[in-house]
Write a protein that binds this DNA or RNA. Structure first.
Lengths: 246, 246
DNA sequence: GAGTGGTCTAGACCACAAA
DNA sequence: TTGTGGTCTAGACCACTCC
């Protein structure tokens, strides 16, 4: 970083992008953990031998990606997997009538077991077929009413000691972070309309054949490795999924 | 803008935001039209009596919102409603198998008539109930197969002379722009799973009761006024809606 | 070679939070 | 009062496009 990197090659990266990579590395290796304050811009600029403006550009980019939180007068902090933030960032279902911010959905655990990745799971998680995975099935409720079934698949290798858990918390992204240092940074979702099968009908208290919104999510960590596959089947009679295009 | 705006009030806006508002005003009043080049950063800075860096921050923000396109060595241009951009920005349906960029969907016009806004339409478009609107119903096809029905509702007042059109083009956002200077800058969508009714079944060549993805879009112009309500009902057997969360 | 946006720097002042 | 991030400025050099 000290050298001007007289780089004419195709792999050129601007200084601020290199700085950002450096900072992300410190998040990955847990030098800076969620909730902790980073050094000031001036201090980082000294450490990395770049100007404060260049550090700022990297910090602003990471803030835009919800990796950091900046507070004027206080400092820059590593974003925490708080319920409110996770809800806002990763939960797109809202009640039709209320515009109010919704609550974190409750969970009812159905099943939780080790399994071997099938073709689709292996592909989604960049594993080989048959690789050990954990599978969690649960129902999620809003205001006491079941709104969706959720099947979570995660690679066993990325979450050692998973079997020692005595319960699955509501907010698993917080669990991933606290227990294994895995930060969910991004998620890609594919949506379809499907018909409720017998299991759906039983769990969601609806008729078989009723239209459900199927959401297939692949969530990735700071290094853009897929670490969770989540398939939800949502009853959207009184709810909807929101998306904003710009 | 020349005065430092010694502003202690709650309504304070940073300079670059004021510059951005100024520039958007020039887009709204069509001083700068789609495809046109803007003056250089230096020139804008002189005109507005601010530094180049402040102009740059405004231009960068507008580029991030897809209002402008910047090309190194050439200049800054007003974004055009080209098929490829509109497709990328506002069309979220993709075929399950191909990862390739999809084509702009063909359209088959079903109906096109003036009507009076009902309660839901009035609310969505900030009109009073009974206000005159145009309603367009069409089917959209990919690779020759019908994939969705689409009902577009627009305020008649915002599109004078709409009745003189002798056809509805595939890309209506381009039409809005070219003919009425209306730029679609943002869209909010609400998704639900619904059952196909008899009309859906006929148009999409599926069975009544088959699950469809219902997408209700409210599209807004540069001044954030809602100008189009669009309700799509999509067959998602071989397709999906994509969303990215970060 | 002239002009454009892209990057990087250095320094000033302000608004805000905490001690 | 001190230290932080937020804003604004001024100027330098680079990479790219076009003539």
């Amino acid at each position: 970083m000290a050298a001007p990197e007289n780089d004419t090659s195709i792999g050129f990266k601007p200084l601020y992008a290199q700085v950002k990579d450096q900072l992300i590395r410190r998040l990955v290796d847990r030098t800076w953990q969620p909730g902790m304050g980073l050094p000031s811009e001036q201090e980082l600029a000294r450490q990395l031998s770049v100007s404060q403006g260049t550090v700022r550009k990297a910090l602003d980019a990471m803030t835009a990606e919800n990796l950091l939180v900046r507070r004027q007068g206080r400092g820059t902090f590593v974003a925490e997997p708080e319920d409110s933030r996770i809800l806002f960032q990763f939960f797109r279902l809202a009640a039709d009538d209320t515009d109010a911010a919704d609550m974190f959905p409750d969970s009812k655990l159905l099943d939780w077991s080790q399994a071997e990745a099938d073709g689709a799971q292996a592909k989604a998680l960049s594993l080989s077929v048959g690789a050990p995975v954990w599978r969690i099935e649960r129902i999620r409720l809003l205001l006491g009413k079941p709104v969706l079934t959720e099947t979570i698949t995660i690679p066993a290798a990325a979450f050692p000691g998973f079997e020692e858990l005595d319960e699955i918390p509501n907010n698993v992204y917080r669990l991933y972070s606290v227990r294994w240092g895995v930060t969910i940074a991004k998620a890609d979702e594919k949506l379809k309309a499907v018909a409720a099968d017998a299991d759906d009908a039983r769990h969601l208290n609806c008729k078989a054949g009723e239209p459900l919104l199927s959401v297939t999510r692949i969530a990735s960590d700071l290094e853009e490795r897929p670490v969770e596959l989540r398939i939800s089947r949502c009853l959207t009679r009184d709810m909807h999924y929101t998306a904003s295009l710009r």
